[in-house]
Design a protein around this nucleic acid. Structure first.
Lengths: 352, 352
DNA sequence: ATCGCTGCTGTAAACGTTTACAGGCAAGCC
DNA sequence: GGCTTGCCTGTAAACGTTTACAGCAGCGAT
């Protein structure tokens, strides 16, 4: 009635008592440090009987490592981030790290909070994918007390590894494709211009037209938000203004799905009347009707690269910040290429 | 040169020195306990200057609370689990808990590992959604040292809250719907029978036929796995064996998408020749071609309910285990109801 | 018999907090 | 003036580990 300390679960102390050795010996056995055969046996037996499990919190306090990594995604509903998550998770797991998931809903204050909370040291590192990068972000990044990898673009000189998509090239691939198909009234449906992807894709669209010798026309650009319903609304407006568009470059698969909805409702055929291209190449692109040509910005690859960069930092690498750029890829499907390939059945499509 | 202790970041000790008070006072100020005005001022000033942030690990060790909750999902690629995740995350966040994400890939050993690791006390509670529930699961559940909520079915008497879908009713809704449309050769494409959903849906299918007075025919049942490619393979086999089916009840949206692929490739029209119903009502169902009638098993609602149950436990409620059942809902779309409603544009579809 | 190894083992301090307890001090009362 | 009372404050222990250090036994060499 005086053996067990106080709490419920057995601790290293409980085992020490039971085995008749010191807590140091218990710890050593549990950590595989050299020990006499007999001591080891007693300790292991006691641990087994008691159903002992190491307390991760106490370990972390002493070792200053939590074996946890945070991933702060802007929008937990966006398939592009989910694709990253899917790749990040197994990489971390394989390296013995747990994943703490934050969804910031793209609210700047929330993202700053996450950065600030790194000081609480409940994680060893962070992967974050902000929609916007503000000065507040950069400030908090500079003050961060653990390694951070940013998926998205960050100014040169920032003290964080950086994994980027190349949406400029991505947009050009798509616009070139549409141009090659004979389209000349190519509109762009974009998200907010003060977001990183919004700005980059908008500029890239302009550049791509220029390179092709097509005129840039403000009327052909419509700004909405990165969601399906918003995309639909934006395309409806666009069609009202310029009924003769023959191609839509959408900044996002969700926007593109909204576009398909509206085009269908307006009686236009896709791709015969209007060709549609999305971006991100999410699962939805393959499943939609008609299946959606989409620019893959390598979400999965970016997630994986970010996780691997972070792991290197956690292993002690403190060389200069790195920059990894993942090349885009155009995945052609029915929404631009006619009806011959309207099903995704031909594509290798794994366990999704 | 002798002030700061050893590590890098400021601790409560650093503040105490700087402010010329004891660490107890610092702690009290930081926790809002009654303190003299002057002391409070000094402490807060010092904390501010030093950029102090509370160490979460040390706090957790003392308080025995980590403010973290784990969610163990069987398959991080499955939209049904993602729907749960999307609901769980904000509920936990609002209550001040962080989310630790585990993906077990439906491997039993991994799930047991997660349960076992609860003993490490790096989380205050767990929500898990196993595909199979084995004896090993039940054993580990019984030994779990923190509250656990299981999404899925668990035998009566298990020491865990339980949130269930009612797939029996769900299947019946679907089969009744198909029957009402005049279909009489209704096949079932199921996942493995040793999984909880597989077994439940298979049995429900049989019952539903019985209630309608339709004969049960082994030839009309095809077992595959819960993935798109597998579903396609299964449906191909089924069609070879019974070319005259006029309806497919698929245990899963992914299977149903595979079915659509194969039906299209075989020249059959949907729904004219063969009507198709999926289950889970994932995002894919609304986006597919033709849009997919699907039984919503309330993944989102289940996730939310699970999170709320767990929070109650964390607030100290230790009443008897609860059982929450979420009712299913049939969402009719083009794959059964003809072409009039082939687009999802009419449905309120938010930020996905 | 003494010395110095070698190889385990135990004691105690540390990680950064929270908190029970006791001490100090001013004010209020007789 | 001494006593109680109340309010703050500091000391120290605790949470459950890991680990530097010292101690001790056994053993071969001198």
């Amino acid at each position: 009635m005086e053996g067990t300390p106080l709490g419920d679960g057995p601790t290293i102390n409980t085992i020490a008592e039971r085995a008749g050795v010191s807590i140091a010996s218990v710890s050593r056995v549990l950590n595989g440090l050299p020990t006499r055969r007999e001591t080891e046996r007693k300790v292991l037996a006691a641990a087994e009987e008691l159903g002992y499990v190491r307390n991760a919190v106490a370990r972390s306090l002493k070792s200053r490592r939590t074996h946890q990594v945070a991933f702060a995604m802007a929008d937990i509903g966006n398939p592009a981030y989910l694709a990253m998550l899917r790749e990040i998770q197994p990489v971390l797991k394989a390296a013995g790290y747990r994943l703490v998931l934050h969804s910031t809903d793209a609210v700047v204050a929330d993202e700053i909070d996450v950065l600030h909370s790194l000081g609480e040291r409940y994680v060893d590192g962070l992967i974050m994918s902000p929609l916007r990068v503000t000065d507040a972000h950069l400030e908090s990044l500079a003050a961060a007390r653990t390694p951070v990898v940013v998926i998205g673009s960050v100014p040169e000189g920032t003290r964080a590894d950086n994994v980027r998509a190349d949406s400029r090239t991505g947009v050009r691939l798509a616009v070139d494709h549409l141009h090659a198909l004979g389209r000349r009234r190519i509109a762009m449906v974009n998200g907010p211009l003060d977001t990183v992807p919004g700005a980059a894709r908008g500029a890239a669209y302009r550049e791509a037209l220029e390179e092709l010798g097509l005129p840039y026309d403000d009327d052909l650009v419509q700004i909405g938000d990165f969601y399906r319903a918003e995309g639909a609304r934006a395309v409806a407006e666009l069609l009202a203004r310029v009924p003769d568009v023959d191609a839509l470059m959408c900044a996002n698969d969700l926007i593109a799905l909204g576009a398909l909805d509206v085009l269908r409702a307006s009686g236009r055929r896709v791709p015969d009347d209007v060709a549609v291209v999305g971006m991100d190449d999410t699962d939805l692109a393959a499943a939609s009707w008609p299946s959606l040509t989409s620019v893959s910005l390598g979400s999965a690859e970016r997630g994986k690269a970010a996780a691997e960069l972070l792991l290197q930092r956690l292993r002690g690498d403190d060389s200069a910040p790195r920059l990894v750029t993942v090349p885009p890829r155009l995945v052609v499907r029915a929404s631009t290429a006619g009806n011959r390939a309207d099903g995704p059945y031909d594509r290798k499509e794994g366990g999704v």
